[in-house]
Write a protein that binds this DNA or RNA. Structure first.
Lengths: 118, 118
DNA sequence: CATCGTTATATTTAATCATATATAACAATA
DNA sequence: TATTGTTATATATGATTAAATATAACGATG
């Protein structure tokens, strides 16, 4: 396995962050499950936390990244909008570029680490 | 002022992280003040926290990044080793490269954000 | 050899953050 | 119109984290 750094990109917006690694994963989970609560369960995250993150994203961007509907036979649900998919894709691309840019340096730096005992 | 993303690079080592943004700033403060406690004061950080970070760095890498001395007329002090300076420089270079790699993408993404009210 | 401010460390206290719990509204459908 | 599982929201509880406090050792220097 190749040594890898944690690269955490976050886009600030006022007090909090419009998007970051956690919100990206949440978007993907909403995409695959069709609901905020199911996504939360999948990610071992309280519904409240998942909802707060969605709410934050929707308020930070010009348009909603997630559309929600309460009620109906199935109780309701949520889905990632086209706009949300665009943002998600841009974010993942940025992560990949940043990772590639420091790939060689990271490998070098790992040589300076102590052998991880215990 | 140009829109800028928070890019947080951290090098994992076992349980914790060998170096990251906070430790880099601390190294620079130790370099300029000559002591862990003075660096802590400068960064509004408890001595304990500063010391724990130094201890973590020194244990994570093959060689100490900070040399310390207790006692003496001035009470003692700390200084960043040549090895520490090398690591610090590598880390800062990685940050710069990562930033440059996503610079354009970040600018694009900022256009999708809502006007930040409040 | 007494003094000084620091390193080094443990323990207690406080602040922060996330989770758990509870409740109402929702709207399609049977 | 009763049922269903979700969204939406507030409040209370618990857990995690950082800070505050305390103490001993250090060692050059006057």
């Amino acid at each position: 396995m190749k040594p890898t750094a944690y690269i955490r990109i976050r886009i600030p917006h006022g007090e909090d962050f419009a998007i970051g690694p956690g919100k990206a994963i949440l978007l993907e989970a909403i995409q695959s499950t069709g609901s905020i609560s199911a996504a939360g369960r999948e990610l071992n995250m309280s519904y409240r936390r998942a909802w707060l993150l969605v709410d934050s994203m929707n308020r930070c961007f010009r348009k909603p990244l997630v559309d929600t509907a309460a009620g109906g036979r199935s109780g309701g649900g949520a889905h990632v909008t086209d706009f949300g998919l665009d943002v998600l894709q841009r974010f993942r691309a940025m992560e990949a570029k940043a990772r590639a840019a420091i790939d060689a340096d990271v490998a070098q730096l790992f040589h300076l680490l102590a052998g991880k005992r215990r």
